[in-house]
Amino acid sequence: MPNSPSKPPVYRFAPSPNGALHLGHALSALLNADFASATGGRLLLRLEDIDRARCRLEFEQAIFEDLDWLGISFEAPVRRQSEHFADYETALDRLRSRGLVYPAFLTRGEIRAHVADIEAGGSTWPRDPDGAPLYPGPERTWDIRQREDAVAAAAATGRPYAWRLDMQKACNTIDRLLTWRETGTRPQGGTDNPESTAGTVEARPEAWGDVILSRPDAPSSYHLSVTVDDALQGVTHVVRGQDLYHATAVHRLLQTLLDLPEPVYHHHRLILGPDGRKLSKSHRDTGLAALRERGLSAADVRALVL
């Protein structure tokens, strides 16, 4: 969707306060800030803190300190996802009313066991672009009464369940080819349609199977919340790492289903560690604060990543 010439572009940096920012975050933050500055655009900060078990106030404060050290300023107020659960529930209700989501009860262990049984017999089980097995979806064929009874029983017994998108049904409601505009770089070895024109990428959300949109420990999934947030915040340009390149297909599908605007996407390279894997908080890769303590300056960090 083209932007109005009277409105400046809107960029956003959206970290999760569940650990220290590292060089990969610095690259993303600096690119967003530089693009916003070069285009006369706005830069927003969003804290993706839906996972309340891992997100902590000290990490949030550290994000502010790191961005200030890098010389990056952003508009107030900061959007915290934990303060907007009602927005995500409203979007989920819209999909639920159209019969595009269903309650899913299999645990991760049950999914692994199911896949192991299938593959033990010599067959292969489909996996998403991140390598996770697709959800078997036994509940997908239930009628409305079966689903309502199962949800009521779960509420009575405390059995956890998630809401998943019926991917095939959702894709069947779209009467046009889904694409997105890409101004960054595509991951090596990708599965993009070779006929896609430069700058236009065909979205293939079906590769992800029935993605989770809500679960007991998080009222919204990354896919749903980021799609809703970008629309509500008026984000016109999404600049993020290549690890989220293929997930864009799911976001484009949700944007279409919910009648939300389509941003321009720019996926940048990832900063890799000595072992060749991308930097990660979960692996406790060196954070920006630690680099600062070693004597590196913000200019040093910029030179390292740009």
Rank of each mutant, 00 (worst) to 15 (best):
E206Y: 08
G234N: 07
A207Y: 01
V211L: 15
R42N: 13
S225F: 00
D130A: 00
V78R: 02
T183A: 02
T107A: 01
T191P: 03
V235K: 01
A198Y: 01
L296I: 05
A198K: 00
Q242C: 12
P8Q: 03
D285V: 14
D130F: 09
A152G: 04
I111S: 09
G189W: 03
G19K: 07
E182S: 06
Q188H: 02
H84G: 13
L304I: 02
P129H: 04
R284G: 07
I72E: 00
L45Q: 05
R294Y: 02
N172I: 07
T157C: 13
T157Y: 06
Q242W: 07
E206A: 14
L67K: 10
G158Y: 09
A116I: 02
D166P: 06
N172M: 12
D210A: 11
D175C: 00
V211N: 10
A170N: 00
P263Q: 10
A152M: 03
D34G: 12
A104H: 08
Y265F: 00
S221I: 11
K281A: 13
A203I: 04
R252Q: 15
A38G: 11
H283L: 09
Y102G: 01
V301D: 09
A289F: 00
R204P: 02
I144M: 09
P133E: 02
R145Q: 11
V228N: 07
A289G: 05
D210Q: 06
V201T: 14
A218D: 12
T185D: 10
S214K: 06
A249F: 06
M1A: 12
I174F: 06
S4V: 08
V264N: 08
S282D: 07
H223D: 14
Y265Q: 06
R284N: 12
C55Y: 05
T256Q: 01
H268E: 08
S282Y: 07
H246R: 03
G19H: 08
K281G: 08
D117E: 14
F85L: 06
H223S: 15
N172R: 14
Q242H: 01
G273C: 01
R52N: 02
W142I: 08
M167Y: 05
H246D: 14
C171F: 00
R140V: 01
Q233V: 04
S297E: 04
R12H: 14
I212L: 07
A152R: 03
L213G: 00
A33C: 05
L95H: 09
E206Q: 08
D66G: 04
V305C: 05
D87F: 10
R215L: 02
V264L: 04
S280Y: 00
S6L: 15
A156N: 06
D117Y: 01
Y161K: 13
L165C: 01
E119R: 12
E65G: 02
V235D: 08
